[in-house]
Design a protein around this nucleic acid. Structure first.
Lengths: 203, 203, 203, 203
DNA sequence: TTCTAATCGAGACGGTACGTCCCGTCTTGCC
DNA sequence: GGCAAGACGGGACGTACCGTCTCGATTAGAA
């Protein structure tokens, strides 16, 4: 799944970067146009001006290609963890950051398909979990720990639950309900979430 | 899309209920086994012991069939709105009810696929919104209004936001993160949500 | 294959003649329009304003229906055997008669299909042989016997061969080659055939 | 319809001869077993061990495939024109040659179907006319011209009519009547035909 | 610089599923 | 019981992709 580089072998040749790039580019365009499930390898190859074999030389299957492409695109673009020095402003900033990320048009088009595929494709599920969800949860939890250190939140805070409270309402609204959220909504949500966090102590 | 009943004037022939039932049954089994996107009409027909034409006589396409099947299965199974007389117990009961619904194994298998398909299929999106989401939100909001009437929540409550706070954390966790939730999680979540609701006043 | 009439049975009812007629009429129109092999029972029923079952109540299959229809239409329409009192004029008249029959537009459309079907359908082959070919050969042979009696042809004439010589050139030309034949052609053919017949003595 | 050879400019892929051969082989077996009209592309593909797409890559439809297959099989197998130096022996030899060709078991099975299809399919009609009928008529007419040059036939011979007289009786008997013909029949037919030819002068 | 082997574009390959049409049978309710 | 209408199981039609394979024509590392 990662043979896109390398091969110092004997008389051989390497997979050419230009080709890989053309495929990647074409694949994201196709993804955006037709969605995760409907995208066809033939269309990607055609758009990239490339033979189908060039795709299958790089990835063993359509799923694997998409999984890797998603991973590479999505990983490493983690926005900075808010650190304003106060829980309420940190919170408000985190919500704005989440909104910004979820408003990405590609994500809007293929996000749901990604989650659907992940139910059947362990590799993709893993990518999404460790590449997307985990770092964001970790950032949120770091933010919460700062607040605990500052005394803004009780030391007994259940950070697992707290991360859900922080992320879920906005993520669910945008990803699943496909509803928008204006600044007022975020303000109100920040207030409510702050209250929730203060009550989120483990038993 | 709903011609399974009704009479085209005179002398005509009706779609037979037994066949419709066999197809419906087979379709759900296939859905559970292979998921929303991978399911094949041929497999459904084969399993139902039916010709492919019997499917296409009822629905114009695979998408239409699935959309209608989902609608019929999912609509009308609305659990009762909690009405214990106290916000906290209502809340706890609603969370338990949501967990029960989301634990449905069929839903677990095809829920994500459904959401993915809905991004590209307006009819399905509509079905999911008006058939699934809207009644549940309405029930949650009715519950909240009772609490307002009893003075447990402020009259200025933003019920739109409040519904998100009620439903999203658990739904997101189970549907998207595919994580479980034990009774302790629900207890703690109920506490935190109650606090959030009390702070969820519109600006 | 012959149940189109009859059935004085117990409390039953008879197949209605009006329906049979409508089907027959429609079948010939469809035959003429789409040919023997392409004709569809659904189209016949539709055109006749009749249920498909009405067809299958009368005939066990598409082939059987066509076979019987062809038989009924084609049998009994035998033109009179020429008897002018002289071989040459008899001959010329017979050729004109053959040309007239083969110029039938329905025959032109479905004749070849009929022959093709007959290769795979013994019943149809039988119908065509005993209903169409045999009586015409018999008439030709009667004509030849008159000529022998008059001394215009030798008594040792091979009437089997002679019938081929009489019928085949024109029939092959029109039926298989789908070529026309004007009066001059028929005149010349009559001359040549007369010469051939005089030489057609069995060894 | 003929792209089985040739190169589409550069880098492309060719239809593989082995596959084409397997399909051709399978198609003729199926043709012989089930006839022209009943033959199915799925059965051909199955028997050839080939995907249906391999067929449709070569020919746009079932009809086109059969038309081309027939053309290729039937064209170029023209037997030599008799040239014994005497009309009577030429004639006898030509009849024997016709009998030999029409006794081909494949032809016996699908010949009629071919003619039937030709009524509805101009391409096939053309193939049969220019590929099968025309060269044979031309050969017969060449044979007749030699006889004229030798003085065995009158210079005013109507060669169009003469070709009919030569070919039709035997062809009609075998192809349409599906009757056999022994050597005695051919001897007698040769005698009669020779007499007919001598009388076949244009008006 | 020449050799040489893997990569390249193109697209054919065996398959599977799509949605359509027709076969011959069966079902429904009316006459 | 026949009738019109048309649903039924089945099977072939011709199309679109899947992932693999084949073909000459590059192309770049090793000699």
């Amino acid at each position: 799944m990662d043979q896109a580089e390398g091969r110092p072998a004997s008389g051989g040749a390497l997979l050419r970067q230009r080709v890989t790039d053309a495929i990647t580019e074409a694949a994201f365009v196709e993804l955006a146009e037709t969605g995760y499930a409907r995208m066809s390898m033939e269309a990607v190859a055609r758009r990239a001006g490339v033979g189908k074999a060039a795709l299958y030389r790089r990835w063993p299957s359509k799923q694997a290609m998409l999984t890797e492409l998603i991973r590479d695109r999505v990983t490493g673009t983690l926005p900075p963890t808010p650190a304003t020095g106060a829980l309420h402003t940190d919170l408000r900033e985190l919500l704005a950051s989440i909104r910004r990320q979820l408003a990405n048009p590609l994500l809007a088009r293929i996000g749901a398909g990604l989650l659907a595929e992940a139910s059947h494709d362990g590799a993709l599920a893993e990518v999404l979990h460790t590449g997307v969800a985990a770092p964001r949860r970790a950032a949120a939890q770091a933010m919460l720990r700062s607040a605990i250190d500052r005394g803004e939140l009780p030391p007994g805070l259940d950070t697992e639950l707290a991360a859900d409270l922080l992320i879920a309402p906005l993520a669910f609204r945008m990803l699943v309900m496909r509803a928008g959220s204006d600044d007022e909504y975020l303000d109100a949500l920040a207030n409510a979430t702050e209250a929730a966090l203060k009550a989120a102590v483990a038993k």
